[in-house]
């Protein structure tokens, strides 16, 4: 893996969502995080969830253009995972054993909190889209998420022409926005 020696190159690859880069980071660091979780009352499935969440925190960070971690990638993932896991344990009312290799930690509280806010927003979006029902859900996903061309979408969904599909799409979008903003405003009121 010579071309990926540099961690900054890895992070740049990650920002582009490159599969090979993800595999390299995964291979190098997954086992460490898994043993952290397994040694602290977690299951293998928990380990997978936590590691993937930490990867998402990292992904969001590098996507905003910051490739400077100020620490090793390994330390970063470890600190984020530990923070996430401690939070999860404390919400589940488990006894939290403190001082788990604290010396390896790196302050990540702010990033984890920002991640949780974003996660809640994405969750809202996911629920809003799911509650639309078909064909709205697939139509909007095809256009806005998978960036498919309107002609292609019209053909795939069986509309007679792209204009009809487009009209339908805007009707769906109006509905989606109403649902999303209703939840979004509620969500921000509570905070």
């Amino acid at each position: 893996m010579k071309p990926y020696q540099n961690e900054q190159d890895l992070l740049k690859g990650l920002a582009l969502g490159d599969k090979q880069t993800i595999e390299i980071i995964y291979k190098d660091h997954y086992n460490l995080i898994q043993s952290l979780i397994l040694n602290n009352n977690g299951s293998a499935d928990d380990a997978k969830d936590i590691f993937q969440e930490a990867m998402i925190v990292l992904y969001e960070k590098v996507r905003s253009g910051r490739f400077e971690l100020n620490c090793q990638l390994k330390t970063y993932l470890y600190s984020v995972s530990k923070r996430l896991w401690l939070k999860k344990l404390s919400t589940n009312n488990h006894f939290v054993s403190t001082g788990v290799e604290l010396e390896q930690s790196f302050p990540v509280e702010e990033e984890v909190e920002a991640h949780e806010r974003r996660d809640a927003e994405f969750d809202m979006m996911e629920k809003a889209i799911a509650s639309l029902g078909e064909p709205c859900k697939s139509l909007l996903e095809a256009y806005y998420l998978n960036k498919q061309n309107m002609q292609v979408i019209a053909a795939a969904f069986g509309y007679t022409n792209a204009d009809n599909a487009k009209n339908q799409k805007y009707k769906c979008l109006v509905r989606l926005k109403k649902i999303f903003f209703a939840h979004y405003k509620n969500g921000t009121d509570h905070e």
């Binding site: 969502g17 599969k19 993800i22 595999e23 995964y26 974003r118 806005y144 998978n146």
Partner: peptide, 28 residues
């Protein structure tokens, strides 16, 4: 928001694919 959601969703499913592949290969 929608755009970021799309990227996030894609990234998440990519992570699942990578996890499954690596577990099958025994790399993790």
């Amino acid at each position: 928001q929608l755009n970021r959601f799309g990227k996030w969703k894609k990234f998440r499913s990519l992570l699942q694919v990578v996890h499954t592949d690596l577990a099958e290969q025994g790399s993790i």
